[in-house]
């Protein structure tokens, strides 16, 4: 085999392997391809990575908490096992210094009053209610993030005939991370401009690469395209004023400005002065997505650990029951 043939063969094998590894699905309602990520908590044996949850909380605190609440999570949860597992004293101090106060009362004078949160309190978000949030955010509502990782999913976009097998594979490999994959895709899915399209003579819109769009004329920037039937022209849905283009978001128009950037959050340093993981947008997105997975499913680790104990018991008992059944039926033809 010549070198060029070897390279060609290698490229072929690699690309086939790549296609098979990249399972794409789309966000609910959006028809968008979402790439599956490898999480420490993927699969039946996966558990949360405590360091990652701690970094993810840091990202939440420094970036997301300005707009998004997480009010089903309590400060004490940050201490509990199976989560970020911060030392209790640190979380006490964190609560006492938290940017938003808790409304308590009424006191002995019958007045409501504000006080710093305690360990037992829910983490107070930036806004008192939805109206206040919308007023502050030009009418957009930053949703509470407590359950967001379970409240989002991915839709299958592959061929119909493969769908049943895809479902069986997901059941057998315990794929549960659709929401987390979606969050990661959303946080890393921003683009400066909406994708470029060119209109063909019969009115269809065809995607062109950014490089080609540079020097071409008649390029339209569309957040999404509504394909028309028959002789009608495709409709280019342009990005609205004040909206950002996001590849993962359903409809691709999102009010949230790109929240993350490289070195947005300072991570713990190793002995050599370098951060434990790179302080990149992708890493921040990955960490905060993992943190949100925990926030939505804090009993995850306990669930899987108990699950294996239960399953082991069931497997052994089932084997014993099988041989008991065989022994009982041994002398009876059936």
């Amino acid at each position: 085999m010549t070198t060029s043939k070897k390279i060609a063969a290698f490229v072929f094998v690699a690309s086939v392997a790549g296609i098979m590894n990249t399972t794409v699905a789309s966000a609910a309602g959006g028809g968008v391809a979402i790439e599956r990520q490898a999480w420490s908590f993927s699969g039946p044996f996966g558990l949360y990575d405590q360091g990652q949850l701690q970094r993810g909380f840091q990202v939440y605190q420094n970036v997301c908490a300005g707009c998004h609440g997480i009010d089903r999570v309590r400060f004490r949860n940050l201490v509990e096992p199976g989560g970020p597992g911060f030392p209790e004293a640190d979380v006490k101090a964190l609560a006492a210094d938290w940017a938003n106060a808790v409304v308590d009362g009424p006191n002995d004078d019958g007045e409501m009053f504000e006080r710093p949160p305690r360990l037992s309190d829910a983490i107070p978000g930036p806004y008192k209610n939805e109206k206040q949030a919308r007023a502050a955010q030009n009418g957009a509502y930053p949703p509470d993030l407590s359950l967001i990782a379970r409240a989002r999913g991915v839709e299958y976009t592959g061929p119909v005939w493969w769908h049943p097998f895809h479902m069986l594979k997901d059941m057998a490999t315990a794929y549960q991370e659709g929401g987390v994959d979606y969050i990661y895709a959303l946080l890393t899915g921003y683009r400066d401009e909406a994708p470029a399209f060119k209109r063909t003579e019969d009115g269809k819109l065809v995607a062109v690469s950014d490089a080609d769009a540079e020097d071409a004329t008649g390029v339209e920037r569309c957040a999404s395209v509504t394909h028309a039937n028959g002789a009608e022209k495709d409709v280019c849905v342009a990005l609205q004023e004040g909206m950002q283009y996001n590849a993962a978001f359903p409809g691709h128009q999102i009010a949230m400005t790109p929240p993350l950037s490289d070195e947005a959050v300072e991570y713990k340093k190793n002995a050599d002065g370098k951060p434990v993981v790179p302080e990149t947008t992708a890493q921040h997105a990955r960490d905060v997505a993992a943190f949100l997975a925990w926030a939505a499913d804090p009993s995850h680790d306990q669930r899987k650990r108990l699950g294996w104990q239960v399953l082991l018991y069931l497997l052994i008992t089932t084997i014993l029951l099988y041989y008991a059944k065989k022994a009982i039926w041994k002398r009876v033809k059936h």
């Binding site: 549960q176 399953l311 069931l314 089932t318």
Partner: peptide, 27 residues
């Protein structure tokens, strides 16, 4: 015996794919 085989499948879903058979929107 059959019930225990059924339980293995049942509890696989409960412990490892608990949200598989419901819809994300209900969160």
């Amino acid at each position: 015996f059959a019930m225990f085989v059924f339980l293995i499948v049942f509890l696989w879903f409960v412990f490892f794919v608990p949200d598989y058979m419901s819809h994300a929107d209900n969160y």
